[in-house]
Amino acid sequence: MSASMNNDVRAEPNLTPLLDVVFQLITFFMLVINFSQDNFDSRIKLPVAGSARPQDDAAKLGDERLVLNVDKDGHMIFNGQVLSADEATQKIKLEAQIARQNIKTLKGKVEQGEALPARIVIRADRDTPFAALFALINTCQTNGYQKFDLKAMNGP
């Protein structure tokens, strides 16, 4: 009698609430995850500036951006690769040409001297000498970029 009782009793916990919670957690992580890391390079130690403002999300989505990581020796890092000064110049020139071509396709012609709407985002190391940075900024300006975002940490 008791043996048959034991065989018939089946413990079936209701897993639906647990599944709901897990799906909510998955949704949260899917929304906050950032695979691209915005060309974030962990080798760069950004300077600290109190009045640096967080990036506007609308601007992040709307603007075309070119992120330049610069290490403490003044070398540009692009897609994880350290570039020499000449390679960096060529890369910026190429990006500017592509940007002009895109605008030409979408809107119309952009004159050679006309400023490009794209923003240059500079993530330079805190120990980078100004000379290296100035050379990069000059190259960007020569190729038609005028809008710059200089990255810094909000706190230590």
Binding site: F29, V32, I33, N34, F35, Q37, D38, F40, L46, A49, S51, A52, R53, P54, Q55, R119, V121, I137, Q141, Q146, K147, F148, D149, L150, K151, A152, M153, N154, G155
Partner: peptide, 15 residues
Amino acid sequence: TYRPAPMEGQFSMNL
């Protein structure tokens, strides 16, 4: 795979 983004700010300027 979750890596919280560092608290980066920026100075937007026309140079």
